[in-house]
């Protein structure tokens, strides 16, 4: 599936990272990462498991703190935010978790309205219901509104996870392995949904994946994390048109399986 045309504003950076380093004891995961995400862009971060892809977006969302380096999200320095500023910023930065992270004691409706009710306490019951139904309709799962997460398939859970992210109308969406553990057909559905979200909600996104089909279908630009740094970036073809054995091995593994 070809990536639809998108309106990217290359003059406006929504995330800017310079010299980001993060270690866990002796494991140096990120060793000086530089990154820019532009307004309206879908940026795919590729890399093998354990290379720090998820650590990167957890730092962007404030779940982890950087050891050193500068992380600017919507112009705010993540290293110098008060609790309130961080909370306000998080409303604008959605996070779609690898395992969806749905609240398993709540129905789909409660899952989606949970962040909305807490961040917009003045909304009436009717307004909340309308917004929940609208976002569920946008991800094609309005019929599951009263189901429990345990009753949903893997693909449905991913969609509901994305819907819960979208209910706050974020400016940036961070996707952590959106197609992990799904069958190929459902992967295509999720890739399409990521592109639809970009079009409908005018979001900028970082998509963490090691699935090259997902990368090709959703990425306006692709960066590859190798040995704790972004070694290659550009379009899909630019990134993989190389003699670098590490990159070629990654490509061969994905497309010869």
């Amino acid at each position: 599936m070809a990536k639809p045309n998108t309106n990217i504003d290359y003059n406006q950076t929504v995330i800017s990272i310079r010299g980001l380093k993060k270690s866990f004891e002796t494991n140096h995961v990120l060793r000086g990462v530089d990154l820019d995400l532009y307004q309206g862009e879908n940026l795919v971060v590729l890399g093998r498991s354990g290379t720090g892809k998820s650590v990167l977006i957890k730092i962007i969302s404030g779940l982890l703190t950087a050891d050193s380096g500068e992380v600017l999200v919507l112009g705010k320095d993540m290293n110098n935010l008060s609790a309130k500023e961080l909370r306000d910023l998080r409303i604008k930065v959605g996070f779609s978790f690898q395992n969806s992270a749905l609240y398993d004691s709540m129905t789909v409706r409660k899952n989606i309205e949970f962040p909305l009710v807490r961040n917009s306490p003045k909304l009436t019951r009717k307004e909340v219901t309308m917004q929940v139904e609208e976002v569920l309709d946008n991800v094609g799962l309005l019929q599951t509104i009263n189901q429990m997460p345990s009753e949903l398939s893997g693909g449905q859970r991913k969609r509901i996870g994305i819907a819960r992210t979208l209910i706050l109308k974020p400016e940036i969406v961070l996707y952590d392995e959106p197609t992990a553990g799904l069958d190929p057909i459902t992967c295509i559905d999720i890739n399409e949904l990521i592109n639809e979200v970009q079009q409908m909600y005018h979001t900028s996104s970082i998509i963490i994946t090691h699935d090259l089909t997902c990368a090709k279908a959703t990425g306006d630009r692709i960066v590859m994390l190798l040995d704790g740094k972004f070694e290659r970036q550009g379009s899909f073809d630019e990134v993989f048109n190389t003699t670098d054995e590490r990159v070629k091995a990654f490509y061969d593994y994905n497309f010869t399986q």
Partner: peptide, 11 residues
């Protein structure tokens, strides 16, 4: 990661 999910949604 449900606790993380709460945290990133401003709760």
């Amino acid at each position: 990661e449900q606790i993380d999910a709460m945290e990133v949604s401003g709760t």
